[in-house]
Design a protein around this nucleic acid. Structure first.
Lengths: 157, 157
DNA sequence: GAATATTCGTAGCATTCGCAACGAAGTCAA
DNA sequence: TTGACTTCGTTGCGAATGCTACGAATATTC
């Protein structure tokens, strides 16, 4: 690609102005990272649970047991290989159990163990409190944020 | 850790309701990932530039040459080791040049090469167009989103 | 029923990430 | 000047990530 002389440094291309700080994808990325990390600190340090693990656990807590990897894929915005690996880790930690589906043995059934359930019984209220704190912090701006996010997520998630 | 009998499956803990889809950190994460990937496709495929690389390039295009790693750290929400590695890659690709600062030789000056400049001359209009498309897509919801994001980012970025 | 195609989940591999430790360069204090 | 301390940037290492290919189980077609 056009590798001209390196000598005359400036003048050549008067690059257009561009302010990263007002670039929506960047702003979303930073906001997402902040909230995720702020929350993740709570359950990473206290429970040793990562974000993908958290997502899978929430889904299992929400939809009940007997969910397959395929069911979770997409619903929590994880690729199937991520779900697979996450499930493996959660099983190793004793938080979920993996069993083969009775009639279709391609499917793997995921279910919270008792230990997983009691962990979620502690975690979910924390998450709810965090959500409440966000809403409080944003005040009247919260509804606008929600409406904006709806436009992005409208299709499927 | 408390691994009780696995037999009696439910009843034990009536877990609180929790809907991941309406959890703000999750919604932000998904929206961020979508926009980033949508944009990244454009410049990853066409220019072979990753997101951290893009951020560093934008910063250099915006603030002019002679910026140090330390200057960039924080401004584009990257850790210093990320900036360091990103700069290394960009230099290998010939998009930026790294030179030692004249008086303080701890500092490394980063500057776009001519090749980097012409790449940015192509990239920045693409990004601007994408921003315009987002604003068009969101319509009246855009302002609300901005206000909400401001509340998250208010402090420093 | 046999051959083919499809779905589900996993694993290999290379890359990237995150942390923490390090070396080099500079500053400060005596 | 010497020695302790700080700042800047890089790197080693283990873990996580993303892609792709693969094997097992099922569905489909003839």
């Amino acid at each position: 690609m056009a590798h001209m002389t390196d000598a005359p440094k400036d003048t050549s291309h008067p690059l257009p102005d561009f302010d990263l700080d007002s670039f929506t994808p960047y702003r979303l990325a930073v906001a997402a990272k902040r909230t995720s990390e702020e929350l993740a600190r709570q359950y990473r340090e206290r429970f040793g649970v990562s974000i993908p693990e958290w997502r899978v656990l929430v889904h299992l807590a929400h939809t009940g047991d007997g969910t397959s990897v395929k069911d979770i894929e997409g619903r929590v915005q994880l690729e199937k290989y991520e779900v697979s690996r996450t499930a493996k880790r959660l099983a190793e930690k004793g938080l979920i159990a993996k069993t083969a589906h009775a009639s279709d043995r391609r499917l793997v059934q995921l279910a919270l163990t008792d230990e997983g359930r009691s962990l979620m019984a502690e975690l979910l209220p924390l998450a709810k409190a965090y959500q409440a704190e966000i809403e409080r912090r944003l005040g009247s701006a919260f509804d606008g944020l929600e409406a904006g996010l709806d436009s992005f997520l409208g299709d499927d998630a």
